[in-house]
Design a protein around this nucleic acid. Structure first.
Length: 244
DNA sequence: CGGCATCCCTGGGAGC
DNA sequence: TGCTCCCAGGGATGCC
């Protein structure tokens, strides 16, 4: 998405990667010499790991050739048709102050996430709760699909002001977020188009979506047609009866 | 600071 | 079949 002024492939040549970690929607790959390779897949990006050297295809931007423990090689390819994703390479010591990471909220599947956290960061906020869920500074890692699905599960209208979320609603919302994310991960993600797992498998959570992409179709709970509205430029899908 | 519109980019599907 | 238009999983940026 933007150039890497300081980064050269030679900075990674011969290095070993430690176990990669995920933070929000970022993949972080630390090296044995104190660097971190950061990757964000944007809307259309994917990373695939090939057993044999692949021919580079359209929109393949980066290929990492790595030695594998079995003595062979693996080829990690970053593909991103829309180029909304980005890559950075920086010193591990700078991670805490990294512009893209420093302000990120807690992991919804981590210990710091709770109904109390939701109440604290939503308090006095006038924006719709849907917008607040997409704000990575409040909670990390929730995207448009899972925001819609979690709000449906919690019975909360996406239009409700974030600041009006009571303790009871916060409890339902926290549980819904965790449940939806765990279920989606278990299904390998939501493959609307571009998403694939590293082995190339698609994700099947698309078959379990209750509101996202279902405008006009009956609510799975009450049969009322699912409604769609635009909030800060993103589509929200919800049941006007079940979600208040 | 909060909130909103705009922009980045390609490609698939709908409609004609 | 081919054209145009609209829309899409994200988020930085700039404006009020």
């Amino acid at each position: 998405r933007w150039p890497l002024p300081g980064a050269r492939d030679s900075q990674l040549l011969g290095r070993h990667f430690a176990a990669p970690i995920r933070r929000g929607k970022y993949v972080l790959m630390p090296t044995d010499d104190g660097q971190v390779l950061l990757i964000h897949l944007g809307m259309s990006g994917s990373m695939r790991i090939h057993e044999t050297k692949p021919d580079l295809a359209r929109h393949d931007h980066i290929m990492l050739t790595v030695d594998a423990p079995d003595g062979g090689h693996r080829y990690i390819v970053l593909n991103d048709p829309r180029r909304f994703g980005w890559v950075d390479l920086f010193a591990e010591d700078d991670m805490a102050k990294h512009k893209l990471l420093r302000d990120m909220g807690p992991e919804p599947l981590g210990n710091a996430f709770s109904a109390a956290h939701i109440r604290a960061v939503f308090a006095n906020r006038k924006s719709p709760v849907k917008n607040a869920l997409l704000d990575q500074r409040l909670i990390a890692g929730i995207g448009n699909i899972y925001a819609c699905e979690a709000l449906f599960k919690a019975g909360i209208s996406p239009r409700r002001r974030a600041g009006s979320i009571t303790a009871g609603r916060a409890e339902k919302l926290a549980n819904a977020i965790v449940t939806v994310l765990r279920a989606a991960i278990a299904e390998g993600g939501t493959s609307l188009r571009d998403h694939v797992q590293p082995g190339g498998e698609i994700g099947y959570f698309v078959q379990k979506l209750t509101v996202y992409g279902r405008a006009g179709l009956p609510c799975v709970t009450c049969g009322t047609p699912i409604r769609t509205i635009v909030q800060s430029g993103r589509s929200s899908f919800y049941c006007p009866v079940c979600q208040r």
